[in-house]
Design a protein around this nucleic acid. Structure first.
Lengths: 99, 99
DNA sequence: AAAACTAGTTTGCAATACCAACTTGTTTCT
DNA sequence: AGAAACAAGTTGGTATTGCAAACTAGTTTT
């Protein structure tokens, strides 16, 4: 039984998906940002971004706060403690497996 | 424009999928093996393994040789030069992005 | 007041992914 | 000889992803 190999199979799928990996890595680095910033930074279209954010929220990895910038709606995103931990674990496992 | 972020989006999807990541990483390490060995090592069911192998073959990343061990069919798998290169690139990008 | 814009969400669709069950040919058990 | 098991797939069925287009709700422009 090759444990090194199995490590790849234990990767958190919610985070592993490149679209969400971009989002989580960004939020890990900058703590908080809004929907538009994410859209520009990741170059995803609105629909795709929106669904990835829903998935991350369901997983408890991000917090979604709908607010206003003046009178324009603005959605603020940030990692939860659980999300930070999940990303750290993911990175750790991946680094180990890629050795 | 955050290039670090975009790196995650440039990852080779054929290799990024954990099932295929296991296969490719194994073949990278051991050069050649058969279907059964892969099945035990990755703990995937036959259907899933078979379809991942087809995908990797289509991508030109592995060579599939159907032979016999006595009269029992045996499928031998190995990475192509292109497959080795793709895995090296994948690893390089990922390591860079995880920094 | 109507048209256009902002910020998202929802929907429909094609491609993938994974599992379970079925298939074909061979070998082993009884 | 007949039944069970094995190797290697193939074939559904269900879930997920990604994109584009339509939709919503409030705001600003003309």
């Amino acid at each position: 039984m090759n444990r090194q190999t199995q490590t790849f199979n234990e990767l958190d799928r919610v985070i592993h998906e490149p679209g969400r990996l971009m989002i989580v890595a960004l939020l890990f680095a900058i703590d908080q940002c809004d929907f538009l910033y994410l859209q520009h930074e990741t170059e995803m279209n609105k629909g795709t971004l929106s669904s990835h954010l829903s998935r991350l929220e369901e997983a408890g990895y991000i917090e979604v706060v709908k607010t206003y910038r003046g009178k324009v709606p603005q959605t603020l995103l940030s990692l939860t403690a659980s999300g930070r931990e999940a990303f750290k674990q993911y990175r750790k496992k991946l680094k180990k497996a890629l050795k």
